[in-house]
């Protein structure tokens, strides 16, 4: 079986963000980078599938500057077999369509039986790339999965809907699936596997060699949300804060009545 896993490197979402000088993305300096959380579930599911079927080759693909190789190495240490890095220092300027075109361009003619992606990225959050890749390749896509199983060319899965309801869905491979949080429990790479990952193939190709499609969407402005005001902000010593809070709860709510 040939399997492709598409991952993205994103900043830790607990970081403080500010707009860059051009006002078209966030400032990338002083951020801690990690694998997009949704993609961790994608990598884990692909590795579990390989463990299930035995014979499988797992390619992990990532687009971005050289910095993203660190995240790719994590995917290799989790169990992917080879890495395909599309080197692009300005990938953040590409919209979902341009990113999906690059990936579909790579995947076409490679004969992947299954493609795993996260349901969305944590920074851009468009939830488009996975479905777009599938549409470009003309294969079915199942989105927002919280359960996945595979038997003899058929995917059986559950999509997460609002209110915690799940929809049971099925399709034949080749197919693409997008992974929701909670699909599985992503493994931590072990030290031996981290060492092994260093020897795995990781090939970089400059994006310019792949004739990328133009973006259909441009960012005019990036800024923090306007503060609506009204909310009181308290700081200080815990004991003082506790007294102030009890006073506020007495005055403004019926919780202590």
């Amino acid at each position: 079986m040939k399997i492709l896993i598409c991952i993205k490197q994103v900043p830790d979402m607990e970081s403080k963000f500010k707009a860059n000088a051009a006002g078209n993305w966030y400032e990338e300096t002083d951020l801690a980078w990690r694998m997009n959380e949704y993609d961790e579930f994608a990598v884990e599911q692909a590795v579990q599938l390989k463990e299930q079927v035995g014979e499988a080759d797992l390619t992990v693909l990532c687009i971005g500057s050289d910095r993203v190789k660190e995240t790719m190495k994590k995917a290799l240490a989790m169990g992917c077999d080879r890495g395909v890095h599309i080197a692009d220092d300005e990938s953040y300027l590409k919209d979902s369509y341009a990113i999906a075109s690059l990936i579909a361009g790579f995947a076409k003619d490679k004969g992947f039986d299954l493609i795993f992606t996260g349901m969305q990225s944590q920074d851009r959050g468009s939830a488009q790339v996975g479905v777009l890749i599938a549409e470009m390749l003309g294969i079915p896509s199942l989105t927002t999965l919280v359960e996945f199983s595979y038997t003899d060319g058929t995917v059986n899965a559950k999509r997460e809907l609002e209110g915690g309801t799940r929809a049971k869905v099925s399709c034949s491979t080749p197919a693409l699936v997008t992974c929701q949080l909670g699909l599985n429990t992503p493994r931590y790479p072990t030290l031996p596997n981290i060492m092994k990952a260093k020897k795995k193939e990781l090939i970089s190709t400059p994006v310019a060699e792949l004739s990328p499609a133009a973006s259909l969407l441009e960012t005019l402005q990036m800024a923090p949300p306007e503060k609506k005001g009204g909310g009181l902000v308290l700081e200080g010593d815990p004991a003082d804060l506790a007294d102030q809070l009890i006073q506020i709860l007495k005055e403004k709510t019926t919780a202590l009545a």
């Binding site: 979402m13 707009a19 005019l220 402005q221 949300p225």
Partner: peptide, 20 residues
């Protein structure tokens, strides 16, 4: 007249424009 979407867990907002 432009549409605004959230980024980074709603910590930022992005005004976007389509070229289509």
């Amino acid at each position: 007249g432009n549409l605004v979407v959230p980024s980074c867990n709603s910590k930022l907002r992005r005004q976007v424009k389509a070229t289509t």
